[in-house]
Amino acid sequence: MNSAVTAAPKTRSDYVEIASFYLGDVLLGLPIDQVEEMNHHFNLTPVPQAPQCVRGVMNLRGNVVTVIDLRVILGLEPTVITRQTCNVVVSSRDEQIGILTDRVGDVVRTRWSSIEPPPANVVGSDGRYFRGVCRLDHELLILLDVEQLLAAEASAR
């Protein structure tokens, strides 16, 4: 009778799948359960008075989705949209938001235990956007904190 009212404890499996993408030569990633899709749709409508990082809004299957520029959030020059530019659509607090990145990467499968805290000198920006760093065979993958990314510009104007 009591099982109905007590919550089952959650266990985390040791493996995580990370959707990865490039910003210049740097490989970044997000846990795949946060990523809704990755596409190449860029029919953006600019929004006047919106924060700098907002490139515009787009129509994603009937929903009006904000698209933000990751480069601008990290303090870099705005993304130049090319055929390789990838729109990573994440889901956060019941809202879909698209993030512009330069190039799509692979889905990386690794263990949580192999993710280390980030070094302080990555891509020249605040460390709060980065959750950790993961060593892959040939390169370093930086795991992003999506809530921090989205929150950063939402409050600052």
């Binding site: 409508t45 006047p48 919106a50 009006v64 989705v65 904000t66 809202e95």
Partner: peptide
């Protein structure tokens, strides 16, 4: 359609809509 949380400060806008041709109009 509501605008996302990043647009909370856009006082001139009340939302967005999708027009017949699929484009977004504020």
């Amino acid at each position: 359609k509501p605008l996302g949380r990043h647009m909370k400060g856009c006082s001139c806008l009340a939302g967005a809509t999708i027009l017949g041709d699929g484009n977004v109009a504020l």
